[in-house]
């Protein structure tokens, strides 16, 4: 069953097209990676899906979530879907959390706003337990600055999962974390998104290969290659994908011991 269907999505500012004719589909329980370098349009694509693009950008095409057209939907309706039918985890949890509100209340708020739970406060503690925050009852009373980076990301994940969204978008969720913490967070994302559609944005190829089954490669605003992770990563067709894979491999070097790089021409 298709959860997210994006067709011919373009995002532009003035005459400059930043995202060009992007199409993708994600089904329930499917995990799709979106890779590409800074400025390739990954995050803009995600923002367009969430309806979070800055006003000065023009969007065209079609974004359907569970069969409903999101582009052109009034903000009042969109905000009812955000945090409920679709949610997002960002790279930097410190800027995404409210610094002056206890994290348990922030998790409960997501359920209170959408009236999805009779007892949001207790449910928040359960959720914090589900993302394996130690001593969830106490953690619920903590403010964001009292938690470590990994703990904050667990809180973000609890908020994102609170209303069992059909679509979860993760935008570089582990890039700012230590490797051992990253491994735990990736496990949590995998364990808690079994029935949801997952769009996972990262520039780390090893992370994509760990989490996703399918992958989309973005370059200069376009999806230049897509397919099963195994196929794309073992037999890349597009030149950019080939170079990206070569440059990320720290174990393969040229005759002078130098890494392979991407040439932009």
């Amino acid at each position: 069953m298709t959860v997210l269907a994006v067709r011919g999505l373009s995002v532009s500012v003035g005459d400059t097209e930043l995202v060009k004719d992007v199409s993708l589909e994600i089904g329930a329980g499917e995990r799709v990676g979106l890779i590409g370098e800074s400025g390739s349009g990954k995050s803009l694509t995600a923002s367009a899906v969430m309806g979070l693009l800055p006003e000065e950008l023009d969007v065209s095409g079609s974004v359907e979530l569970d069969g409903r057209q999101l582009l052109g939907m009034p903000e009042r309706e969109l905000s009812r879907l955000r945090g409920r039918a679709m949610s997002m985890v960002f790279q930097e949890p410190m800027t995404a959390l409210n610094p002056s509100m206890q994290v348990g209340k922030q998790v409960a708020e997501v359920m209170r706003l959408h009236r999805t739970n009779q007892d949001p406060r207790a449910a928040a503690v359960d959720l914090l337990d589900r993302v394996r925050l130690p001593d969830p009852r106490r953690a619920a009373k903590a403010y964001p600055h009292q938690l470590s980076g990994g703990q904050r990301q667990r809180v973000m994940l609890a908020m994102a999962l609170a209303n069992n969204p059909s679509l979860l978008i993760c935008d570089e969720p582990t890039t700012a974390l230590d490797v051992t913490v990253q491994a735990q967070i990736l496990d949590l994302i995998l364990a808690n998104t079994q029935g949801s559609a997952l769009l996972f944005i990262t520039h780390d190829l090893a992370v994509v290969a760990t989490v996703c089954e399918r992958v989309l490669v973005m370059y200069d605003g376009q999806i230049v290659e897509s397919g099963l992770v195994l196929d794309v990563f073992t037999a890349p067709q597009h030149r950019y994908t080939q170079q990206l894979l070569a440059s990320s491999d720290l174990e393969s070097t040229d005759e002078n011991g130098r890494l392979k790089t991407v040439s932009h021409d």
Binding site: T180, L186, D204, L205, A206, A209, F233, T234
Partner: peptide, 15 residues
């Protein structure tokens, strides 16, 4: 530390 760091090779071996 070594086990926690994902590598492309190990991840692809899963498939």
């Amino acid at each position: 530390l070594i086990a926690a760091a994902p590598t492309l090779r190990a991840a692809l071996a899963r498939f």
